[in-house]
Nucleic acid binder design. Sequence first.
DNA 1: GGCCAGGTCAAAG
DNA 2: CTTTGACATGGC
Length: 229
Amino acid sequence: MIFMVDLRELYLLLKEHWGHLSWWPAESAFEVAVGAILTQRTAWRNVESAIMRLKEKQAMHPDGILGIPEFELADMLRCCGFYRQKSTYLRDFCRFLVSEFEGDIEKMNAMGVEDARQALLLVRGIGQETADSILLYACGVSTFVIDEYTRRIVSRIERTEKPGYLVLKRRFESELPPDINIYRQFHALLVELGKGYCKSKPECRGCPAFTVCLTAGASVEREQRVAQK
DNA sequence: GGCCAGGTCAAAG
DNA sequence: CTTTGACATGGC
């Protein structure tokens, strides 16, 4: 007997609890993509200050970033962590945009979703989650983003091993209507849930989302590790 | 001071 | 093919 959570139901539950989240604010599609790379394993507030620095330099476009000396760019990204790595990732991505799309990320929309995804995955520093984030949040393509929270939440609810990225992605896409606004909101809500915010707020106690949140918070993983010893 | 943050890559088993 | 270690700073 395998229990499968109803993803539409979960979405409605979370939406009712948190309402509409204004996620991933940015002034351009390119800025979203930059954020997608910089936020890898990094708190968003640290990404924001790096983005501000790039904007102050009037460099929030591919040529602008490529015009910054390598060591200087790395230094500007210091606050995001992994800054040497990320500066090369960002430069590689900009070179990719310049050579394939004349520096205009909007032109990527002319490709099919799968082609664009494959093309992005060939860029160093862009893995599945970052590729899907760029497609969904920057390009407005209805492709679902899976992150570590999502995999953990589903595996906890269903008491199974963590599913593979593509398997879970395809499942979300087949169980939900292909609506970019739902995809964007749902992923954002899963991140909120995964952070365990609900669990830490007394006023949430008793609400249905709280029950899900109890098993979804980041700290649970550590508790499990400790319990195993 | 320890843990966590909107992952990815290359090397090793 | 899966697992593991490196990458690194900032806030709570």
